[in-house]
């Protein structure tokens, strides 16, 4: 427990000093406020940049708040998620490759504490970023399009955070198993590409972790989704599995640290 706290402190210090806790939330806030703003000004933008033929009239759909939040979620799920998992997928293997891990691994630490310290800091970074991102999106949506039920909104954000925490665990697991280049590739395939693949061919099944984000946004609507709870539970089970595998591989690959 004591080594966990020391390692946690170390991870926080690193993330703080490398400005991760500044730029990652700012990136998500930017992503979050982009959609409400651009959709709102879409007509003006099109008129200003495109040389519309005379008599051409553009009819944009009338957006409701849930559409905008769905669009923001789409931003998080693509650009935001890619940037986030790239950052996480280097947390364990990079230390082994540059040799900084050596002076930690030779001390009486448990690899459980080591992995969990990184997972906790990575998860908090993700939770902070998406919460602020959604807050930004919601703020603009509320001003420009109208509001949604507060409790449902909070529920949605928390539900999305489960997905981010899951993504953190998977990225860290790959980080423990492979070197940086492979870990990053696999993580990007499994997480952001996984989301895309699931949205393309996912109509054949009803619950998978990659659907959790969309199901979370649906919490805002009145329709009841019978698959939501199962999806949530499955995500949590896979999350725990990723952590266990990650810890085992952190220990197994400890000897690969550069000496």
């Amino acid at each position: 427990m004591k080594t966990f706290i020391i390692l946690l402190q170390k991870e926080f210090r690193e993330s703080w000093r490398s400005f991760k806790f500044l730029w990652m939330p700012l990136l998500f806030i930017l992503l979050g406020i982009t959609d409400p703003l651009t959709n709102y000004y879409m007509e003006d933008i099109l008129n200003a940049v495109g040389n519309m033929p005379d008599g051409f009239s553009l009819s944009l759909p009338d957006f409701v708040p849930i559409d905008i939040l769905m669009a923001s979620t789409g931003q998080f799920q693509s650009i935001g998620l890619i940037v986030f998992v790239i950052t996480i997928a280097g947390m364990i293997n990079r230390e082994r490759q540059n040799g900084t891990a050596t002076l930690i691994y030779v001390r009486p630490i448990s690899f459980f504490a080591l992995f969990m310290s990184k997972w906790v800091v990575g998860s908090l970074l993700g939770i902070l970023s998406v919460s602020l991102g959604y807050a930004g999106s919601m703020y603009y949506t509320a001003i420009l399009y109208g509001s949604v039920d507060t409790m449902s909104f909070i529920q949605m954000v928390m539900s999305y955070c489960v997905w981010i925490v899951f993504a953190t665990a998977v990225a860290l697991m790959f980080s423990a198993i492979f070197k940086t280049a492979f870990a990053t590739t696999f993580t990007i395939i499994v997480i952001p590409f996984g989301v895309m693949i699931d949205s393309l061919i996912g109509q054949y099944w009803h619950f998978s972790p990659w659907k959790l984000a969309n199901y979370s946004v649906q919490l805002l609507s009145d329709t009841h989704n019978e698959y939501y709870i199962k999806t949530l539970l499955l995500t949590i089970i896979l999350l725990i599995l990723a952590i266990i595998i990650g810890i085992l591989f952190t220990r197994k690959n400890a000897g690969t640290t550069k000496i």
Partner: peptide, 14 residues
Amino acid sequence: IDINWALVAPLLVI
């Protein structure tokens, strides 16, 4: 374009 700068300002600040 008639832009409400109060809305766009946070974007620029970030």
